[in-house]
Design a binder for these strands. Structure first.
Length: 354
DNA sequence: AAGTCGGGGAG
DNA sequence: CTCCCAGACTT
């Protein structure tokens, strides 16, 4: 190991310790060393992994690639099915952009992803990180891949105390100096793996780090403090009401949320606007029962406390908003998590009604 | 540059 | 409880 950080030392560590992840190589090429990864699978995994842990992504990736083995299959899918399969993974704009991107690639690129960082970054949902990652991993291009892990590793190696996001240019420059011409994809994944398993946010395992001797923060004892970040403002608590209506034929009253904004494009229960004080406005004429227990859920920038009211109606009832989804077409797993929490509470109460 | 946008696991 | 995560997009 050298006194200055270099790609060779890290790749040596990676070759011995790399976690085997489902998207590192296509199934048909398992055990065939050197086979380049399928760009579709690299793209899909990278989008799913945006701000999301490997553990959370795994089952979604398997499900998506089983349902839609190629980008053409995904492009031809129904929007509602894709949104339903994405439910629970969060950041639903990713799913909408996933479909947009698949349809551009299938339509404008004849089903073949472009192979340069610049062209990739012009596709929906592909930003600086994802474009560089796909170019490096799927197309063997020496692009500078910078995610949260890389930022942390670079900040520590160079003991950079400038808080993010102001430090981003310096961290990117540091990452660029280390990016190799050979095996750029493996190198990118190696730095991220290092950040995920050794150079962790809290109590990093510096003693077994392949870049230990080169790390300035370790020498100065500042590793666990880096990278610094500008403090975030506290989350306010918002209030709301949700209406769960069960028709006597088993259908639930649901509504598709608008594409833009919170939980955009997802199914949900009718209810008050959470940005305002919760004024009751039931979506249908019925006798309502207010549940004693409320749903609590935390989003990125606010806490939510949701009152639940439930009602049973007959098939003559006409909703003011939303549509009744027939029993066989309703799967709670297609709801975003806060809406599924509402269902879980309401379902238990509805079972005890007449 | 700052705000919006999910959800789960670690500490 | 807070912080983080293989960030992108909008304003």
């Amino acid at each position: 190991m050298c006194d200055t950080a270099n790609a060779a030392d890290l790749l040596h560590w990676y070759d011995a310790h790399a976690r085997v992840l489902p998207w590192r190589i296509s199934p048909a090429a398992v055990n065939v060393a050197g086979t380049p990864p399928d760009p579709y699978r690299v793209w899909l995994s990278e989008v799913m992994l945006q701000q999301t842990t490997v553990a959370s992504v795994k089952s979604y990736f398997e499900r998506f690639t089983t349902l839609w083995p190629t980008v053409g299959d995904l492009a031809a899918a129904e929007d509602s099915q894709v949104m339903g399969e994405w439910a629970g993974l969060g950041y639903y704009a990713r799913a909408r952009n996933l479909l947009k991107c698949a349809r551009v690639v299938a339509g404008d690129y004849n089903g073949a992803f472009p192979d340069t960082r610049e062209a990739l970054q012009n596709l929906p949902g592909i930003g600086p990180y994802t474009a560089a990652a796909i170019a490096a991993i799927a197309f063997d291009r020496s692009e500078v891949v910078v995610d949260g892990n890389v930022e942390r590793v670079m900040a520590r190696i160079h003991d950079i105390h400038t808080p993010l996001p102001a430090a981003k240019p310096a961290l990117t420059q540091a990452a660029a100096k280390l990016t190799p011409k050979k095996r750029p994809g493996d190198y990118a994944q190696a730095v991220m793996d290092l950040g995920a398993t050794i150079c962790t946010p809290k109590s990093p395992a510096c003693g077994i780090c392949p870049w230990m001797k080169a790390c300035k923060a370790r020498a100065r004892g500042t590793a666990s403090e880096l990278p610094r970040k500008t403090p975030k403002s506290p989350k306010p608590t918002r209030l709301g009401i949700a209406y769960v209506v069960l028709r006597d034929d088993g259908a639930f009253l649901l509504e598709r949320r608008p594409d833009k904004g919170l939980l955009g494009g997802m199914l949900g229960w009718p209810g008050s606007d959470w940005s305002e004080a919760p004024s009751p406005s039931p979506p249908i004429k019925a006798e309502w029962t207010l549940l004693a227990e409320e749903v609590r859920h935390t989003f990125t920038h606010f806490h939510l406390r949701l009152q639940i009211t439930i009602a049973l109606v007959n098939t003559d009832a006409q909703p003011l908003t939303g549509e009744f989804l027939p029993k066989p077409q309703f799967r709670p797993s297609e709801l975003p998590t806060v809406m599924r929490k509402v269902y879980d509470l309401a379902h238990g109460a509805l079972k005890n009604m007449p």
